[in-house]
Simulated scan of single mutants.
Amino acid sequence: GWTYYDEQCYKYIDSEKTWIEAEFYCLFEGGNLASIHSDEQNYFIKGLTKGDGHDFPQAWIGGFDAIYPGYWMWSDGSKFNYDNWYHDDYSAHDGYHCLKMNYHLKLEWYPDYCNSTLGFVCCKQI
């Protein structure tokens, strides 16, 4: 059920979990929630989430700023060197510390409550 892309494997899980439950799931599978570092990778991962009805459900990816609000990090420890924010809205809203993708019409990124439940994308090295 994993898909190979750019020397890593990815898997979209449509079972809704909180962000930390999703991260634990990915850790159990040998990876982390996905980190995204380019337009091409973002497009690829967005494609993994595409549903049968041609919709793109919102999904957790590995970004969080719970340690220091406004300072975004990836759960896999890689550098946060790319973003796709909805209207450059990367600030921490009250309690919004976990990152989801496929937000609004342009399917961009947006922070959300970490206890919200969404599908998610795992990534692991091969």
Score class of each variant (00 low, 15 high):
Leu48Gly: 13
Gly47Pro: 11
His54Trp: 13
Lys46Pro: 11
Asp76Gln: 05
Pro69Glu: 10
Tyr71Lys: 09
Gly70Lys: 05
Trp72Cys: 02
Phe80His: 11
Gln58Gly: 10
Asp83Asn: 15
Tyr82Val: 03
Ile45Met: 08
Pro69Thr: 06
Ile67Phe: 07
His54Glu: 15
Phe56Tyr: 15
Trp60His: 05
Lys79Tyr: 08
Asp55Arg: 10
Lys46Thr: 15
Phe56Gly: 06
Phe64Asp: 02
Trp74Asp: 06
Gly70Val: 04
Gly51Glu: 12
Lys50Phe: 04
Asp55Ala: 08
Asn81Pro: 09
Lys79Ala: 08
Lys50Gly: 02
Gly51Gln: 14
Asp52Pro: 13
Tyr68Val: 12
Gly62Asn: 01
Ile45Pro: 14
Ser78Met: 02
Gly47Gln: 14
Trp74Tyr: 07
Met73Val: 07
Ala59Cys: 04
Tyr68Ile: 10
Tyr68Gly: 01
Gly70Pro: 09
Lys46Gln: 15
Lys79Gly: 02
Asp83Trp: 11
Trp74Leu: 01
Ile61Ser: 00
Trp85Leu: 01
Trp60Gln: 07
Asp76Ser: 06
Ser78Ile: 00
Thr49Met: 08
Tyr68Cys: 02
Lys46Tyr: 11
Phe56His: 11
Gly53Asn: 15
Asn81Arg: 07
Phe64Cys: 01
Gly51Leu: 07
Leu48Glu: 13
Asp76Val: 08
Ser78Pro: 07
Gly53Glu: 15
Trp72Gly: 08
His54Lys: 13
Gly53Gln: 12
Lys50Cys: 06
Met73Lys: 13
Phe80Met: 03
Thr49Asn: 03
Gly77Asn: 07
Gln58Phe: 05
Ile45Thr: 13
Ser78Cys: 05
Asp65Met: 01
